[in-house]
Design a protein around this nucleic acid. Structure first.
Lengths: 342, 342
DNA sequence: CTGAAAGCGCTAACAG
DNA sequence: CTGTTAGCGCTTTCAG
């Protein structure tokens, strides 16, 4: 259990400020909150008293009655080291959401959960009224938390659609991006297009794979899938598997990787083996991270507007907080960026 | 102002759980908090009732009486894009602190402040009892906030010593690291050692420059200072200034950069100009970021144990939370890592 | 415009 | 072991 509070200095309360100013609790409260209906003289007195005593209102007491906290949580149900890895996706989402909330005068708290235990703690936190709204910056497959929070009446917005749920969400158009990528490959003459798919526990992983399956079927370019986890290393390994597999009539002449990091890992592996990209195997990634422009050759990839995701999440939340009942989902466009690998 | 709460479903309270279970509020409370002194049968009833109603205790009400929240804030009084930039320093500190708190069963909230306004909001947040303790992952020069929080009786730990304050802190031994670097340069024959210093608004920037000044005086290697802001670009520019300046009898034969990122920027600039490192100019950085091992030639640098900083910050805080009155400051060792640039 | 009084939902003595 | 009774510090009617 937690410790004592022995050394905690007594914090002044509103009563003391009121006494110091020679007014009632109610008046002190009104003055401090800037209500117009307070005599200027008294207000000044109260302000002076508060200043002198170093008074800061007790958040618990206040929110117990107002039922507001003026804070919003940005939750990432991911272990912290996944959030802050090579992958700049989360940092960028966080950054842009933070900017938006900051501009709106809201305080944003960032929470991550590594363990099951941490996840449970976050659940309590979100449900017990600590915050006015919750933004899920990522979704764990089958995680009941977003729905739970939503049903308890707290405004919720998710990054990505949670299946079977009516929670408002923001997402990018994975499918049309993948479609565009495959068609481009096809037009460049590729006929055996494999994919390095992302983890199927994540919306992005699932959507991109589904789109690959659909489009490669439509194109008649075959289906060959190896799974990675969005990291560079997994891309490196995955392409190895693809090259070794004897399951196809031939090795692929093109690979669509569901993330730039995986594409980059694959690129390195291919180059180490002396396989030419794009001549022997064409390669397309997804994300358009900063590094995509700096690989040699430059990585052809599907651009998703990461910063806009964070901003849109925040804007949606702000609308809900304003009392908006029905808000539309946001689907942001993706776009193929052609560079050297395809 | 914030919006209405019109659509907010009424959340069940303890009274309702108690009623449903046919016991008093007190018993329900005890049962739910796992006190031993409750009849097993009643406890089961209460738990079932709570489950059925989807009861989650109201945090405000609880903390109003317990004066605890079981959460800790990790505050970075920096704009969010500084926190999540190329520089892996903050992410690593956050990550390791998060792991430590997670293991201890505490919920860690991350707060950043971009604007003055945000900073004020954070101040309120920290002072109004939202959290049991505050860790400052970085310090703004002359920022009164840490001291304010500390004096208000809330446990505080800082990353870096705040001058003139008695707040417990964790830091790395900047000075001995710099000393070691300069001596190494000296031993390798360098006699005109310049520095690219970090921002003097940050402890790390100040400490490293002070150590440089001290040691280069002791060594008689002269003093030539250009300021950067820890980023790669600033390193790139700084070395340019250093090369152009006519203020010395000669250009430097060695440069100590106060961060790896700046060293890297300088390295690139030198190489672009066809200046050989380390033959024409030797170079030493500070941090030992991951990339330091991958530059060509490898970057000689002063290693600081970033992960340990976060862990130590968290451990200090946990001790304070346990009621420890006096805790010792922590100074973590640094160490010169020799690679190719010096 | 100001004060008195009634809670917000919960925990913590204190009796039983 | 359980229920009763006070508050925690604040906002918000409701009178004046």
């Amino acid at each position: 259990m937690a410790g004592r509070n022995a050394n905690r200095r007594e914090r002044p309360t509103l009563v003391q400020v009121a006494a110091e100013a020679g007014v009632s609790r109610a008046t002190a409260s009104r003055a401090l909150r800037g209500e117009r209906t307070v005599d200027a003289g008294l207000r000044a007195k109260v302000e002076r008293a508060a200043e002198k005593l170093g008074y800061v209102p007790n958040a618990a007491a206040r929110s117990l009655v107002t039922r507001r906290t003026d804070t919003v949580a940005l939750i990432l149900p991911e272990p912290t080291d996944r959030v802050f890895s090579d992958d700049q996706f989360f940092p960028n989402v966080i950054r842009s959401a933070a900017a938006e909330f900051e501009a709106a005068g809201k305080l944003m708290l960032l929470l991550t959960a590594g363990s099951e235990d941490g996840h449970r703690r976050i659940e309590r936190y979100a449900l017990s009224g600590h915050v006015d709204g919750v933004v899920f910056a990522s979704l764990r497959d089958g995680d009941p938390l977003p729905e739970l929070v939503h049903r308890s009446g707290i405004p919720v917005v998710c990054n990505g659609a949670q299946k079977g749920s009516s929670i408002p969400y923001v997402d990018v158009d994975h499918r049309s991006g993948v479609r565009e990528a495959l068609r481009h490959m096809y037009e460049r003459g590729c006929r055996r297009i494999a994919t390095i798919a992302g983890p199927q526990t994540m919306v992005a992983g699932r959507e991109r794979l589904a789109a690959y399956a659909e489009e490669s079927k439509a194109l008649g370019t075959g289906t060959q899938i190896v799974f990675g986890d969005f990291t560079k290393e997994s891309g490196h390994n995955a392409i190895g598997v693809l090259l070794d597999e004897g399951t196809w009539e031939d090795t692929p002449d093109a690979v669509f990787a569901a993330s730039d990091l995986m594409a980059y890992g694959a690129l390195q592996h291919l180059q180490q083996k002396g396989i030419s990209v794009p001549d022997d195997i064409a390669l397309v990634g997804f994300d358009d991270m900063e590094m995509a422009a700096f690989t040699e050759p430059g990585l052809t990839t599907v651009r998703q507007p990461i910063d806009e995701i964070g901003a849109a999440l925040a804007k949606q939340m702000l609308m809900l907080l304003e009392g908006e009942e029905e808000i539309a989902n946001v689907v942001l466009p993706t776009q193929l960026i052609r560079r050297g690998t395809c």
